[in-house]
Amino acid sequence: MSRRARLALFLPAALVLAVGLLWSFADLPPFGHYSGIYGIVLGHVAVAQREATNVVSAVTFDYRGVDTLGEEFILFAAAVGSAILLRAQRGEDAAGAAAERSDRRADVVARPVRALGAALVAPTIVLGAYIIAHGQLTPGGGFQGGVILASAAVLVYASGQYLAVRVVRGVAPIEIADALGAAGFALIAVGGLVFGLAALHNFLGYGISGSLFSAGIIPLANVAVGVEVAGGVTLIVAEFLDQALMRRRSG
């Protein structure tokens, strides 16, 4: 189809869509006057029922945990899919050559960049762990903290130590982390069944709200998701970096 024909087809359709959207927006409750019952109820009962002060976490990992289970496997499948696609045309020798090449790269990266990158790795890991551990208390949780942990691996790369990333990566560890995180959350989900309750039932003691070990399975689920996200994102980033290094080598 020519571009002109495609536009001619798109514009009327977009117009209809725009009119439909406007029409439906007119019937939404006015902005700032939310009146949905679920949000209001959860705002009142979440702390009392689950001892979790971060209600968003309580919804994500407890009340609507089944959504998160699905989301988590989307993440897992996408990470594995990206890795398979990017590895499809790459032999192990090519990857080795890329690593060799990056050894020389270590000399190319400016010293201040390397120093700053290396200095930021440890604080980034601590921050990621903190965000994961306090997921049920304050804004944060497994997804956010996991991405922060993955960015620590990127910092290692930015400071020119791609070899170190390879050792950390070494094919296995981050993939195992990815799989363990996914399996961990699935196990937590079936944990309720073990105790004769429903799947994803919050089967642990709730503790006292505001303490690190409160809200039952929510912190555990945060850790599982954090490990999985850190592994998955690092895997995706590492595969794309391999591609970039191979390109530079051949180009």
């Binding site: 939310y34 949000g39 959860l42 705002g43 002060t53 971060n54 968003v56 919804v59 304050t138």
Partner: peptide
């Protein structure tokens, strides 16, 4: 919708959509 530093019963925005 974070009750770490606000009293319970405070009006909060919808946590479900977040």
């Amino acid at each position: 919708p974070i009750f770490a530093d606000i009293p319970s019963g405070t009006q909060v925005v919808d946590p479900v959509v977040q």
